[in-house]
Amino acid sequence: MDAQKVDMFMMTNAKFFESHQVYNIRNILLEIDESKWIYISSIQFKDPTNMLIVSILAGAWGIDRFLIGDTGIGIGKLLTCGGFGIWAIVDLFLIMGATREKNLETFMMHARL
């Protein structure tokens, strides 16, 4: 793929990934076919900061996990009121990393199409 498009994508979307993943994502983008650009450029990533805010406000009910696609964990948090509060507090520290991991999974799924 064209290096200019890759750089534009990375400048726009680097905040949605862990910093150690950005280099690998850039290399993957440089190697993929130009025809996949429309799929890659149309991906809607979840914002880790927004997920942290949701986790602060409604994490005890599992809404943060439902939004990133962890339905099983979301149901567990919903049924236990956030693990009696403990799970909700722990998730305040983990939700941003989990969101970035889900974004990487989404990217990899579209890059393989």
Rank of each mutant, 00 (worst) to 15 (best):
Y23R: 15
Y39T: 14
G59I: 12
N24Q: 13
A3N: 12
S41R: 08
M10Y: 03
Y23G: 10
G83S: 07
I25Q: 02
E18A: 12
N13L: 01
Y39R: 13
K46F: 03
M11C: 08
I40R: 04
S41K: 11
H20N: 15
F84C: 06
E18G: 03
N27G: 04
L79I: 15
L29P: 00
I68D: 00
I68Y: 01
G74D: 03
N50E: 09
A14R: 15
I28G: 00
I32C: 05
E18I: 01
I68H: 02
V22S: 01
L57A: 14
K5T: 10
Y23I: 15
E34H: 07
I28P: 00
F9H: 04
V54F: 01
I32A: 06
W37F: 06
G82C: 05
P48Y: 02
P48D: 04
S42N: 12
I43G: 05
F9A: 05
R26S: 13
I75V: 15
T12V: 07
Y23M: 14
P48W: 00
D2Q: 08
I63C: 03
T71E: 06
F66I: 12
S35K: 15
I32L: 10
M8R: 15
K5Y: 05
I75P: 04
D33S: 13
A58P: 02
I40L: 05
L30T: 09
G76P: 02
G82F: 00
I75H: 07
Q4F: 01
Q4A: 09
W37N: 12
F17H: 08
S55L: 04
L78R: 10
S41T: 12
M8H: 14
K36P: 03
E34K: 12
G82R: 08
I73A: 11
D33V: 05
M11R: 14
G83I: 11
G83V: 13
I56G: 05
I38E: 15
I86A: 10
D47E: 09
L67D: 09
I43S: 03
G72D: 10
F9C: 07
N24P: 00
G76A: 11
F84W: 09
K46G: 04
R65W: 03
L29D: 08
C81V: 15
K36S: 10
L29F: 01
K46Q: 12
N24V: 11
T80N: 06
T12G: 03
I73V: 13
Q4M: 03
L30G: 05
H20F: 04
I75M: 12
K15I: 12
F66Q: 09
